[in-house]
Design a protein around this nucleic acid. Structure first.
Length: 847
RNA sequence: GAGGGAAUGCCGGAGUGGUCAAACGGGCUAGGUUUAGGACCUAGUGGUUUUUACCUUCGGGGGUUCGAAUCCUCCUUCCCUCACCA
């Protein structure tokens, strides 16, 4: 049995690739002085979402992700494209800061070590990145442009400050993320979280909500991701109705203006900034007590909470009938959606009804009589629909049903609108109120403005100086970058506040004493434009040169996980649109095509994670089986967009396959290929080319397997054809393909060789000739069994109709022959013999 | 609650109107080879059997069609994402 020294082969080729700079775009000289001439090629920009460099290094899941992109990059390169395939690191961020502190190190060297390790591992995976184009967000050379864009956005009025609710830990004296504040308890010190209103920096993402939504239609993205973004942006059309609260107008957003006569109470969000202003003195104590127990600001937490509320003591006036409606403060209303207060209709909304069950002093008014059509509740099973329906409606309008009806119906108890269909009533009531100036049609979005400031150290400093006289003063462009100071103390609060020397600066406006903003940017700011930086990653004058952007952008193929559907992918689209409006770019969508890879699970079928101990380390796998076996195995497991389980046994099969290829190359006689092999090779080339092109790698591995199995049976094969077979294999198994390519006597790189030509369809040999003689045989058989008839009726597949030669058949059997297509409605077929017909076999009736 | 996806042998999964169900891999069984193990090679792996054949089967029910794993419809189960957005 062959023993292959994978480590040696892999090292050899990885070294050669790097030395000769063969994966670099135009203009990068290699060790031997050669420069790739790509000047006449079409560009192809392929990109994987850049990783956050974790100290534990890459695991097999990363290997899968990057192999998916690498295969495409290699395939495109061989197909004559100038490929830009870069890799960088999302180096800043909370996880790195926390991990470093835990390890007792400063985040900078800590992250640098991790990056170094990532790069080593990526090279060992055989990934064909252009390392001359790399970047890491932790260096001022990169993040100064975050600051630059911040200033530009600020100038354009897209950045502002506002107060928002945050989780505050009184003992740690800092803001806590939702993840760390589960159950309203601080993860670090177990003290109770308070909700505080704090000011922060916001980007007006909502300004682009409509465009972000509409732009989705143009994108070649998985439908799933588009749907997720659509939900996230969450456009909903409704009516804004003014209720009077303490003599002040308070607009309320609703999608159900048709139920306005059924409003029996209002609920204002417990997190609403104006809440205390409407709380009466008698209720103050109770509300304060209530607020203490609301828990965290996490919406997930909110969703799990029991609906609770407390009276504020204030009343709202219903504009349609002047009724006084009590206002509650509730834990289930979202503060920054609509106006933070909702009108509650317990008869026709589940949430409102749930609330009422606990506070039974609230009355319920039914204002919609359910209609039969579209009735959306379950009726008793032992009754007919009509009976059950009658009974339900009777009970419902009389207030005897404990539940909300949310389906369609006609209005009752609604003044002059009684008897109207409720969908029509929405419009009519809105118009009626609009005439009185009390309502208007509005569009609301779930998408919020993006709060991007963090009270953390390991991020881009926000370039602002606070001056007592001048207020918030932007750092002038010429003073950028504001470099993150290295000397800080980690522990309580924001580390940046511990470096006095850094904080105290002169105000750029008045020259007086100023202090630096100590908040840093969310790392999603970094990742919102990094794809624009790769093509011009060393530019010290500008974030990027427009000529290079014009050549390379937008990204032709973006690859990454579905977990980024709502955050990163929306922010990146938002940035692109803003930069377009600020005349930095002339396109408005960054990623034309998006591919979501599936997740790699451990052999236990669970998500790979340290705590489960099911992480597969590529270093070990490479040692045992060779990187190419691993790549082949990962890609052969399932379609790339489906999840798959790692299996130690499974990879053995791939190793066997690789060994087989080696043994073929050693044992086969080079000479002339057989006809069969030439035909097999050409059909494989056709299929594999198609499969690589649309990410159906799994199918490509199957075809390759068939090809080499077939090759193993051949007595001899031409060197050229063996070379072609290797080319087809090379995107998945680049190292061994290079090795065997060289053994074949080539002295160039298979990675840069031309992709084999696809022969146009050599369809299977025509069967038409055989069909007629087969029919004759069948007819003779039937004649013998059944007896005689004057006319022979044949029923054939529609697509075979043209192949039937009635003259020839008639002559052979000496009878009249009539042919019908099996789907011919006018055919003569008294015994249903058409059913007997199959492709290649006719139905026969003797009449 | 909303949206998306899925259900095929022992397992992972091909097949998305006919000529073709179960490719390809794993596992298992038998045989060969081997000092042994591993590796490798061959055959088998829904049922019947007269084995170049016939039947059964693609989560369940109904439908469209000459013909359905494939299209439509209802149901069941599972996975993912978002989730009290008024």
């Amino acid at each position: 049995m062959i023993e292959i020294n994978f480590a040696k082969i892999e090292k050899k080729w990885q070294g050669k690739w790097e030395k000769e700079k063969i994966f670099c775009t135009q203009g990068v000289p290699s060790a031997s002085g050669k420069v790739n001439d790509n000047s006449k090629k079409e560009k192809y920009y392929i990109l994987e979402m850049f990783p956050y460099p974790s100290a534990s290094g890459l695991h097999m899941g990363h290997a899968l992700n990057y192999s998916i992109g690498d295969v495409m990059a290699r395939f495109k390169r061989m197909n004559g494209f100038e490929v830009l395939y870069p890799m960088g690191f999302d180096a800043l961020g909370l996880p790195a800061e926390n991990a470093a502190i835990k390890a007792g190190e400063h985040p900078k060297p800590f992250t640098e070590k991790a990056i170094k390790n990532y790069i080593r591992q990526m090279k060992e995976l055989g990934l064909s990145y252009d390392w001359t184009k790399t970047l890491a967000t932790m260096y001022p050379e990169y993040y100064r442009w975050n600051q630059y864009f911040f200033l530009k956005f600020l100038e354009a009025g897209l950045i502002y400050r506002k107060k928002a609710s945050v989780n505050w830990c009184p003992s740690c004296n800092t803001i806590i993320s939702n993840e760390q504040a589960q159950g309203g308890i601080c993860e670090r010190c177990d003290s109770k979280i308070e909700i505080r209103q704090l000011e922060g920096w916001y980007l007006k993402t909502t300004k682009y909500a409509d465009e972000l939504l509409n732009g989705l239609d143009k994108l070649d993205w998985p439908e799933k991701i588009k749907a997720m973004q659509k939900n996230w942006i969450g456009r909903s059309e409704g009516t804004e109705i003014d209720f009077e609260v303490n003599g002040v107008k308070w607009p309320i957003f609703t999608t159900r203006p048709d139920t306005i006569f059924g409003v029996t109470f209002m609920v204002v969000s417990a997190q609403h900034e104006k809440l205390m202003s409407i709380v009466t003195d008698e209720q103050k104590k109770e509300v304060e007590e209530f607020l203490k127990n609301v828990g965290s600001v996490s919406e997930k937490e909110m969703a799990e909470l029991e609906k609770k509320g407390v009276l504020t003591g204030s009343y709202a006036i219903n504009p349609v009938n002047g009724e006084r409606i009590p206002i509650y403060a509730g834990n289930f209303v979202v503060a920054d959606y609509g106006s933070g207060m909702v009108m509650a209709v317990p008869a026709h909304d589940h949430r409102d009804r749930d609330f009422v069950r606990k506070y039974n002093e609230i009355k319920i008014i039914e204002v919609i009589k359910p209609s039969k059509k579209g009735f959306n509740l379950e009726l008793p099973k032992n009754k007919s629909f009509d009976e059950g329906y009658e009974e339900f409606v009777n009970n419902f309008v009389n207030g005897k049903v404990d539940g909300a009806y949310t389906g369609p119906g006609t209005l009752i108890n609604s003044g002059q609108f009684n008897g109207l269909d409720n969908t029509k009533a929405k419009e009519k009531i809105t118009v009626w109120l609009k005439k009185q100036g009390k309502a208007r049609k509005v569009v609301n979005y779930k998408l919020r403005d993006w709060g991007f400031s963090r009270q953390r150290y390991w991020g881009t400093p926000i370039p602002i100086i606070r001056c007592e006289g001048c207020g918030l003063v932007p750092v002038p462009e010429k003073d950028l970058p504001v470099v993150l100071p290295e000397k800080v103390k980690f522990g309580k609060g924001n580390p940046l506040e511990t470096n006095e020397g850094w904080i105290n600066v002169k105000c750029p406006k008045c020259g007086g004493a100023g202090k630096r903003e100590t908040e840093t940017m969310d790392t999603f700011f970094d990742s919102s434009w990094y794809f624009l930086r790769y093509p011009d990653n060393k530019n010290e004058k500008k974030p990027f040169d427009i000529k290079k952007i014009k050549k390379w952008l937008p990204v032709d193929q973006y690859i990454g996980g579905a977990e980024h559907a709502c955050m990163h992918l929306i922010y990146a689209r938002f940035f692109t649109k803003v930069l377009r409006d600020l005349k930095f770019l002339d396109f408005d969508e960054p990623f034309k095509v998006l591919f979501n890879q599936g997740m790699l699970h451990g052999s236990d079928g669970e998500k790979m994670s340290k705590s489960k101990g099911n992480i597969i380390n590529p270093d070990e796998i490479s040692k045992k089986y060779g990187m190419d076996s691993a790549r082949y195995f990962l890609l052969s497991l399932a379609a790339p967009d489906k999840p798959r389980d790692w299996s130690d046994k499974g990879i053995q099969g791939s190793l066997r396959f690789i060994k087989k290829i080696f043994s073929i190359s050693e044992n086969i006689k080079f000479g002339k290929s057989s006809e069969d092999f030439i035909s097999k090779l050409s059909s494989t080339t056709r299929d594999v080319t198609e499969f690589y092109g649309n990410f159906q790698y799994r199918k490509a591995t199957i075809k390759l397997k068939e090809l080499f199995d077939f090759l193993a049976e051949q007595k001899e094969v031409s060197k050229e054809d063996f070379g072609i077979s290797l080319k087809l294999l090379s995107p998945i198994c680049p190292h061994i393909a290079e090795e065997l390519w060289e053994k074949l006597g080539n002295n160039d790189f298979i990675s840069l060789s031309k992709w084999p030509k696809v022969e146009k369809s050599e369809k299977k040999k025509e069967k038409g000739v055989d069909l007629n003689s087969k029919i004759i045989e069948d007819i003779k058989y039937v004649l013998e069994k059944v007896g005689t008839g004057k006319v022979v009726y044949l029923y054939v597949m529609p697509f075979e109709l043209g192949k039937i030669d009635t003259g020839k058949i008639g002559k052979a059997i000496g009878k009249e022959v009539k042919v019908f297509a099996v789907n011919d409605s006018k055919k003569f077929d008294p015994e249903g013999k058409a059913k007997r017909a199959k492709p290649g076999k006719v139905g026969i009736y003797l009449g």
